[in-house]
Design a binder for these strands. Sequence first.
DNA 1: AAACGCAACAACCGCAATTTG
DNA 2: GCAAATTGCGGTTGTTGCGTT
Length: 204
Amino acid sequence: MARKGERRGRQPCCEKEGLKRGAWTAAEDKKLVAYITKHGHTNWRNLPKQAGLLRCGKSCRLRWINYLRPDVKRGNFTKEEEDTIISLHSELGNKWSKIASYLPGRTDNEIKNLWHTHIKKKIAQGEASSSSSSKQESYEIKPNQSIVLHENNSAEELSSSQMLWREELNEGVMDFMMMLEEDEGYYNGLVYLESEIDLWGQMN
DNA sequence: AAACGCAACAACCGCAATTTG
DNA sequence: GCAAATTGCGGTTGTTGCGTT
């Protein structure tokens, strides 16, 4: 907290100078995941400094919540999810985080993007409610199954998109593990991460 | 093959709400 | 109770990739 007599008024969320912006690199992602896995995120403002990242806390928080969190569901929206979004939006308006809370694994940003890129257009074209007659679009229905890091699913149980998704996840975890080998504490973090992903999978 | 336009989505910004001392 | 710090949300912008000409 600022002491009396220090600069008044609202400070920017981060110093603009010397901080990196734009797309996140794999190395930055790893640092962030490793740090949060080990220490959690009690203070986003201090986190980047402690994690050795040249980013502002806001940027780290956004990256974690929208992409790096183990329970984030990547991939195309199902028809059911889409219908839920349409229904909730008519009820709640642009309360994206509220809408996201009804869709486990989906983020407000993702839903907002979907709305602006697909759903809004569909509704404008009057297609939203006539799903039976409308043709499937490029983001057509995909089986809504869990992320599985373990080798307990046979290939034929997974769609090609799921296989690709799973491969990407496993690659990421392998990279992460290589980094973790140097630090036992980080390994415990990985175990935690995996159990979280597994738990999320069981819930779905 | 190059140029252009558009769609998709990742990331940033500003403000509001909440928390803290 | 107040001021300042911090977090979270929603709007918007920037970048990238793909399709078309």
